[in-house]
Amino acid sequence: MNEPKDVHHIVDYKILLKSGAALFALTFLTMIAFWNHHHLGAFAAPIAFLIAGVKAAIVMMFFMGLKYDSTMNRIIFGLGFFFLAVLMAFSALDIWTRVPVLGTI
């Protein structure tokens, strides 16, 4: 009632089809990366995560319509990721700063 300006945006179905196609293509790319993972070595996991990240971004922008949404809603959405990062960062802080107990005798 207070914000009459935000009308629901309807995403054009052609954009949805294109995003869908992109998701399938990226899934296929993940499979190619998996078939070649011994060539990629240590890069295999980061590459897989990168592809997954791009896919998630496509879903959020077009299927969830965040690209057309108000900044406020984007911030609220982003907060979830921020606190996920907090959870992981502090848990990692604990594990990475543990001093191995070598015994005192």
Binding site: F90, L93, D94, I95, W96, T97, R98, V99
Partner: peptide, 16 residues
């Protein structure tokens, strides 16, 4: 940002 105060003696690192 404070949850680790439940874990001071649980084997959490001193730094944490």
């Amino acid at each position: 940002f404070v949850w680790g105060h439940h874990m001071y003696v649980s084997g959490q690192s001193e730094t944490a």
